[in-house]
Design a binder for these strands. Sequence first.
DNA 1: GGAAATCTACTCGGATACCGCGTGTCCGAGTTATGGTGG
DNA 2: CCACCATAACTCGGACACGCGGTATCCGAGTAGATTTCC
Lengths: 169, 169
Amino acid sequence: MAFYSSGVEYGIHSLTCMIDAKGNKREMSVREIAQLQGVPFDYLAKIFTKLSKAGLVISAEGKGGGFQLARSPELITLLDIAQAIDDKKPIFQCKEIRERFVVFNDSPPKWACAGICGIHSVMKTAQERMEEVLAQYSILDISRSIYVKAPASFAIEIEEWLNNKRQQS
Amino acid sequence: MAFYSSGVEYGIHSLTCMIDAKGNKREMSVREIAQLQGVPFDYLAKIFTKLSKAGLVISAEGKGGGFQLARSPELITLLDIAQAIDDKKPIFQCKEIRERFVVFNDSPPKWACAGICGIHSVMKTAQERMEEVLAQYSILDISRSIYVKAPASFAIEIEEWLNNKRQQS
DNA sequence: GGAAATCTACTCGGATACCGCGTGTCCGAGTTATGGTGG
DNA sequence: CCACCATAACTCGGACACGCGGTATCCGAGTAGATTTCC
């Protein structure tokens, strides 16, 4: 299985579409976001409560409520989102096998347990490098990479779709 | 769940203990390796067939057989092992959500599908950085990090344990 | 004494069981704007 | 005109069902060295 869950993917895409073509925030409800992207609503709702607890979005309860980015789009990185949804999980879970050597007879000496396991140490470094990359890109970057490819009509169609939706209720 | 399975951890530790204190290869059977480290034998056996297919170890069938490193210890990296056991899996599995926008009406335009997804692209870069670190360390490095902490008696105890084991049969 | 049969200890590969977790759904509770109703 | 109430549309949180994949175990088949047996 992949390391980052599909919840993370939903989260990133969702926050990305809460920015308009000009890079400004746009308040939206979970239902709007879910329908706009063709993603399960109930599931996305749970994801947004996580994003809210992590302080990435601000919630507005009640009718007409929804979510809004808590910070400027360039200050929300992919790492922020991934950690908010997947709870800072490690790439590698050390089982301290080094302590299990049969020659230790179930009572490993101090030197064997001292410091961090060598393998674990390398894995931690690897994860740090990985997360550095994720921390380097914001949802504004992602948003731009979409709008730079899209025709001008794309942004308009989304705006219209949103307006229609809101007009009906 | 962690990205790299516990099978990877078993694999790395196992290959590491197929090197003696001087950094030389040491032929061992799966049973020896499993018992030495206190790890399930049957499970480890399956892992070694993967390592064998990946060309990291060479198998010798029949009585007295076992496994041996296929290359010099400094040429076997943690990435080699991880990929041999976990089959080059991606950190992130793109679901191509960008094609699902409701304004596309189930027929996404070419520009939306063109090239690699922006998020996916960042994730791939992140994974590359991570794997670079893993490719940077060999099992010889890991082995040394253990022996540098251990007293001289440690290597001797392992040798004696192995000799006892082989004498009995 | 030498050849053949037997035994033992391996590597392989498939089948299977267990179980945790990711994914997704459902529902009830609390909140807030909106619209309608009655004095 | 204004206070009050019902309704609709949200967010929140818990419970739960489902299925997949990681972990682990078991077993049979094939292979090769060691041992014994038998002529």
